[in-house]
């Protein structure tokens, strides 16, 4: 027997949204400091309960070049957006976090905001 619960059926899984963001700063910000800044801002603004409810997380392997994706619950996007607005310093750097857009899947977010190329981009349009 596997020592973990079975994957929930699709109807019971929480709905997700992906927030693509860009950090405007003089220097590159690493993943860990960005994640802790987001957590601190969420807990400051909404308390521990609100932060727990939002299911917020930054996807690690898509973070780079001061751009990334935040996963959160589908009805908490506005709350996460305002928490991002309140971040003014990460480490010693002044930062502004700009939300590029919100999507329903990682694939769309990658194509739209993180510069992923698809086969369609390479087909000749003549």
């Amino acid at each position: 027997m596997m020592d973990r619960p079975k994957v929930l059926p699709p109807t019971l899984r929480p709905k997700k949204r992906y927030i693509a963001f860009e950090i405007i700063s003089d220097d590159e910000i690493d993943y860990k400091s960005m994640l802790s800044a987001l957590w601190h801002s969420m807990i400051d603004l909404y308390g521990e309960r609100g932060a727990a409810q939002s299911h917020v997380w930054i996807i690690k392997n898509l973070y780079g070049g001061n751009r990334g994706l935040i996963r959160c619950r589908h009805d908490m996007t506005e709350e996460v957006r305002s928490a991002l607005t309140f971040i003014k310093m990460i480490g010693d750097h002044n930062v502004i976090i700009k939300v590029l857009g919100i999507t329903g899947t990682i694939k769309t977010a990658k194509i739209k905001y993180l510069g992923m190329k698809t086969l369609k981009d390479f087909t000749e349009t003549s």
Binding site: L45, E78, R81, S82, L84, T85, K88, N94, V95, I96, I97, K98, V99
Partner: peptide, 23 residues
């Protein structure tokens, strides 16, 4: 008071939503 205090338009709107205005 400095350029680092500025925010994008939609982010400012989310602050207005935070203090009680409908989106």
């Amino acid at each position: 008071v400095s350029k680092w205090g500025m925010r994008a338009g939609r982010e400012l709107a989310s602050i207005a939503h935070l203090v009680g205005l409908p989106i």
